[in-house]
């Protein structure tokens, strides 16, 4: 199965991005072939609704889970509406989170925030 993680740069060392919708990149990891690829998040520069557009990009990648530190309400509606799981990341280390996920140590994200809509940091 494929999972997605918002990341700061196009590599596995850059760390998980604290923002979902405006993360510059998504890392797509395929648990079967143990390989990652990177998806340019074209939603990051949106005037509004970045979370929705970013979620749409992932839905179209046929992924089964998103590992993220947080997720806004609208993005969550899109992700969950497509039956994709939202999983809470632990710390910023990308590879560590993949390991934890594969060992079943990560739990679902249960706090969905109302969205920052350009007002947060």
């Amino acid at each position: 199965m494929k999972i997605a993680i918002p990341v700061n740069e196009k590599n596995t060392k850059s760390g998980i991005c604290p923002s979902f919708g405006r993360a510059p990149w998504f890392m797509i990891y395929d648990t079967e072939i143990k390989k990652e690829s990177f998806l340019d998040n074209s939603a990051a520069s949106s005037a509004g609704g970045a979370g929705i557009k970013a979620a749409q990009l992932l839905v179209d990648q046929d992924i089964k889970g998103v590992i993220t530190p947080r997720c806004g309400q609208n993005a969550a509606e899109v992700i969950q509406g497509a039956d994709i799981q939202i999983i809470k990341s632990q710390g910023e280390d990308i590879e560590e989170n993949i390991r934890l996920f594969e060992n079943g140590k990560l739990t679902p994200l249960d706090e969905i925030h109302a969205g920052y809509h350009n007002h947060g940091k």
Partner: peptide, 23 residues
């Protein structure tokens, strides 16, 4: 429609367009 919307108020999931009214 989803490609047109500058505010990303429309999403396409499970073969249906979803409207985010507040956006």
């Amino acid at each position: 429609c989803t490609e047109f919307c500058r505010f990303n108020a429309l999403a396409y999931l499970k073969n249906k367009v979803k409207v985010f009214e507040d956006i």
